[in-house]
Nucleic acid binder design. Structure first.
Length: 128
DNA sequence: ATTCTAACA
DNA sequence: TGTTAGAA
Protein backbone atom coordinates (compact mmCIF):
# COMPACT_ATOMS: atom_id res chain seq x y z
CA UNK A 1 0.00 0.00 0.00
CA UNK A 2 1.15 3.54 -0.72
CA UNK A 3 2.48 5.84 1.97
CA UNK A 4 -0.07 8.46 1.02
CA UNK A 5 -2.91 6.07 1.78
CA UNK A 6 -1.34 5.08 5.04
CA UNK A 7 -1.12 8.69 6.16
CA UNK A 8 -4.73 9.29 5.25
CA UNK A 9 -5.77 6.27 7.26
CA UNK A 10 -3.57 7.16 10.21
CA UNK A 11 -5.88 7.87 13.16
CA UNK A 12 -4.36 10.85 14.93
CA UNK A 13 -7.11 13.42 15.36
CA UNK A 14 -9.08 13.84 18.60
CA UNK A 15 -12.82 14.45 18.35
CA UNK A 16 -12.39 18.15 19.13
CA UNK A 17 -10.42 18.68 15.92
CA UNK A 18 -12.93 16.64 13.96
CA UNK A 19 -15.72 18.82 15.27
CA UNK A 20 -14.04 21.94 13.93
CA UNK A 21 -13.10 20.34 10.61
CA UNK A 22 -16.56 18.93 9.93
CA UNK A 23 -18.71 21.42 11.79
CA UNK A 24 -20.51 18.51 13.40
CA UNK A 25 -21.29 18.25 17.12
CA UNK A 26 -19.61 15.61 19.26
CA UNK A 27 -23.08 14.18 19.80
CA UNK A 28 -23.58 13.71 16.07
CA UNK A 29 -20.13 12.26 15.46
CA UNK A 30 -20.65 9.73 18.25
CA UNK A 31 -24.14 8.95 17.05
CA UNK A 32 -22.90 8.13 13.56
CA UNK A 33 -20.43 5.80 15.19
CA UNK A 34 -23.28 4.12 17.04
CA UNK A 35 -24.92 3.61 13.67
CA UNK A 36 -21.86 1.77 12.43
CA UNK A 37 -20.54 4.49 10.14
CA UNK A 38 -17.05 5.83 10.95
CA UNK A 39 -15.95 3.72 13.89
CA UNK A 40 -12.54 5.12 14.91
CA UNK A 41 -9.98 3.24 16.98
CA UNK A 42 -9.49 4.37 20.59
CA UNK A 43 -6.37 5.67 22.25
CA UNK A 44 -5.05 4.22 25.49
CA UNK A 45 -7.26 6.59 27.41
CA UNK A 46 -10.31 5.38 25.46
CA UNK A 47 -10.32 8.50 23.32
CA UNK A 48 -11.58 8.27 19.73
CA UNK A 49 -8.79 8.90 17.23
CA UNK A 50 -9.84 9.87 13.71
CA UNK A 51 -7.99 9.73 10.40
CA UNK A 52 -8.25 12.09 7.44
CA UNK A 53 -10.32 9.42 5.69
CA UNK A 54 -12.71 9.50 8.62
CA UNK A 55 -13.02 13.26 8.17
CA UNK A 56 -13.91 12.77 4.53
CA UNK A 57 -16.48 10.14 5.35
CA UNK A 58 -18.07 12.31 8.01
CA UNK A 59 -18.32 15.18 5.54
CA UNK A 60 -19.84 12.75 3.06
CA UNK A 61 -22.41 11.68 5.61
CA UNK A 62 -23.13 15.30 6.35
CA UNK A 63 -23.84 15.88 2.65
CA UNK A 64 -26.15 12.88 2.39
CA UNK A 65 -28.05 14.15 5.42
CA UNK A 66 -28.28 17.60 3.86
CA UNK A 67 -29.76 15.95 0.77
CA UNK A 68 -32.50 14.56 2.93
CA UNK A 69 -31.22 10.99 3.17
CA UNK A 70 -31.77 9.35 6.54
CA UNK A 71 -29.53 6.99 8.53
CA UNK A 72 -31.15 3.91 7.03
CA UNK A 73 -30.59 5.28 3.56
CA UNK A 74 -26.95 6.10 4.23
CA UNK A 75 -26.41 2.65 5.65
CA UNK A 76 -27.86 1.16 2.49
CA UNK A 77 -25.56 3.25 0.34
CA UNK A 78 -22.46 2.03 2.18
CA UNK A 79 -23.82 -1.50 2.24
CA UNK A 80 -24.13 -1.42 -1.54
CA UNK A 81 -20.64 0.02 -1.93
CA UNK A 82 -19.25 -2.68 0.31
CA UNK A 83 -21.04 -5.34 -1.70
CA UNK A 84 -19.75 -3.85 -4.92
CA UNK A 85 -16.15 -3.80 -3.67
CA UNK A 86 -16.45 -7.35 -2.44
CA UNK A 87 -17.69 -8.37 -5.84
CA UNK A 88 -14.85 -6.61 -7.64
CA UNK A 89 -12.29 -8.23 -5.38
CA UNK A 90 -13.86 -11.60 -6.02
CA UNK A 91 -13.62 -11.02 -9.75
CA UNK A 92 -10.00 -9.87 -9.45
CA UNK A 93 -9.28 -13.01 -7.49
CA UNK A 94 -10.81 -15.19 -10.18
CA UNK A 95 -8.92 -13.29 -12.86
CA UNK A 96 -5.62 -14.05 -11.12
CA UNK A 97 -6.59 -17.66 -10.76
CA UNK A 98 -7.36 -18.04 -14.43
CA UNK A 99 -4.02 -16.44 -15.28
CA UNK A 100 -2.29 -18.98 -13.09
CA UNK A 101 -4.37 -21.68 -14.71
CA UNK A 102 -3.25 -20.51 -18.15
CA UNK A 103 0.39 -20.51 -17.07
CA UNK A 104 0.04 -24.10 -15.98
CA UNK A 105 -1.38 -25.07 -19.34
CA UNK A 106 1.31 -23.23 -21.29
CA UNK A 107 4.04 -24.62 -19.05
CA UNK A 108 2.72 -28.15 -19.61
CA UNK A 109 2.54 -27.55 -23.32
CA UNK A 110 6.11 -26.28 -23.43
CA UNK A 111 7.39 -29.34 -21.62
CA UNK A 112 5.62 -31.71 -23.99
CA UNK A 113 6.76 -29.96 -27.16
CA UNK A 114 10.36 -29.58 -25.98
CA UNK A 115 10.51 -33.22 -24.95
CA UNK A 116 11.98 -32.25 -21.58
CA UNK A 117 9.16 -33.83 -19.66
CA UNK A 118 9.20 -37.32 -18.28
CA UNK A 119 7.74 -39.41 -21.04
CA UNK A 120 4.72 -41.24 -19.74
CA UNK A 121 4.16 -43.15 -22.97
CA UNK A 122 7.12 -44.08 -25.09
CA UNK A 123 6.48 -43.69 -28.76
CA UNK A 124 6.72 -47.17 -30.19
CA UNK A 125 9.20 -47.38 -33.04
CA UNK A 126 7.45 -47.80 -36.28
CA UNK A 127 8.73 -50.46 -38.59
CA UNK A 128 10.25 -49.09 -41.72
C1' DA B 1 -8.64 21.37 29.55
C1' DT B 2 -10.78 17.37 26.85
C1' DT B 3 -13.35 13.49 26.11
C1' DC B 4 -16.29 9.55 27.67
C1' DT B 5 -20.74 7.34 28.95
C1' DA B 6 -25.32 7.58 30.25
C1' DA B 7 -29.44 9.82 30.95
C1' DC B 8 -33.34 13.31 30.31
C1' DA B 9 -36.41 19.27 33.46
C1' DT C 1 -30.08 16.28 18.53
C1' DG C 2 -29.00 19.18 22.65
C1' DT C 3 -27.50 19.26 27.19
C1' DT C 4 -25.72 17.95 31.50
C1' DA C 5 -23.56 15.23 35.31
C1' DG C 6 -19.78 12.61 37.03
C1' DA C 7 -15.71 9.98 35.94
C1' DA C 8 -11.21 9.32 33.48
Amino acid sequence: MKEKELRRSQAVLPIGTVMKLTDLSARQIRYYEEQGLVVPPRSEGNRRMYSLNDIDKLLEIKDYLAEGINMAGIKEIYAQEAAKKAKLQEEAKNRVMTDAEMRRVLQKEFINVSGLGKPTTFPHNQHL
